[in-house]
Computed example of a mutant assay.
Amino acid sequence: MSSTQEYWLSGPIENVPSLLQPAAHALLQSVRETKNYLLDFPEEKLWDTPFGRASVGFHLRHLTGVLDRLLTYAKQETLTDEQFQFLKNEGNGEKAPSSQQLITEFEQKVNEALDYFKTIPESTLTDERFVGRKKLPTTVIGLIFHSAEHSQRHVGQLLVTVSALKA
């Protein structure tokens, strides 16, 4: 597959259920675009907040954190103290890893998500799940779709922030 060809045009991902292919493709595309957008990005600007908007570092951490949390809910588990601590520190650049390490962490979480997708019987995609302390209702496929769409949204925001900071 060409590095410029979008994942959704590359055919199915082996062992991922058909109905989850779009989410898998979107997550893989998010990783690729994040890597491309951050080529030659000045590390000293990782936590800058241009125009009062979220930093590149925040978006990178948030991509990993929100995917982790949504997968937890899809698995019908509750968030751990470690996950709440991660959430609390997503925007904190103090003692933060490099942009490349943050990208690697996101890519690892995407690979974990794809491994999880391969275990999901399609017959369970409409099973009810609950989100957060308020136990807001959704479904397995709702959580998976949202994880992909939310990742794409933050990659778009990251692109704009990177562009503003490189200008």
Rank of each mutant, 00 (worst) to 15 (best):
Q5S: 11
E6W: 13
Y7E: 14
P12W: 00
P12K: 11
I13T: 10
E14M: 06
P17H: 05
Q21C: 07
P22W: 09
P22T: 06
A23P: 05
A26Y: 11
Q29R: 05
R32S: 12
R32H: 11
E33N: 11
K35M: 09
N36Q: 14
N36A: 14
Y37P: 00
Y37G: 02
D40R: 08
P42F: 04
P42L: 04
E43W: 09
E44G: 02
K45P: 02
L46W: 06
W47N: 07
D48Y: 14
T49K: 15
F51E: 12
F51P: 00
G52P: 05
R53L: 14
S55H: 02
G57S: 05
L60I: 05
R61N: 15
H62R: 06
L63Y: 01
D68M: 07
L70E: 08
Q83V: 11
F84V: 01
F86Y: 14
K88D: 13
N89R: 10
E90M: 09
G93R: 13
S98M: 04
S99C: 09
Q101F: 03
E105K: 14
E105P: 04
E107G: 03
V110C: 04
V110M: 10
V110F: 05
N111I: 00
E112P: 01
A113P: 05
L114Y: 09
I120D: 00
I120M: 04
I120A: 07
T124R: 15
L125C: 04
L125E: 06
D127T: 00
D127R: 01
D127P: 04
E128F: 02
R129H: 01
F130S: 06
V131N: 02
G132V: 00
R133W: 12
L136P: 01
L136N: 03
P137A: 02
T138Y: 14
V140N: 06
G142E: 06
L143F: 07
H146E: 15
S147D: 11
S147M: 12
S147Q: 07
A148H: 07
E149D: 10
Q152V: 11
R153L: 13
H154F: 05
H154I: 01
H154K: 06
G156T: 13
G156W: 01
L158P: 09
L158A: 00
L158I: 01
L159E: 07
L159V: 12
V160F: 10
T161P: 05
T161M: 13
T161K: 09
V162D: 03
L165F: 02
K166H: 02
A167K: 15
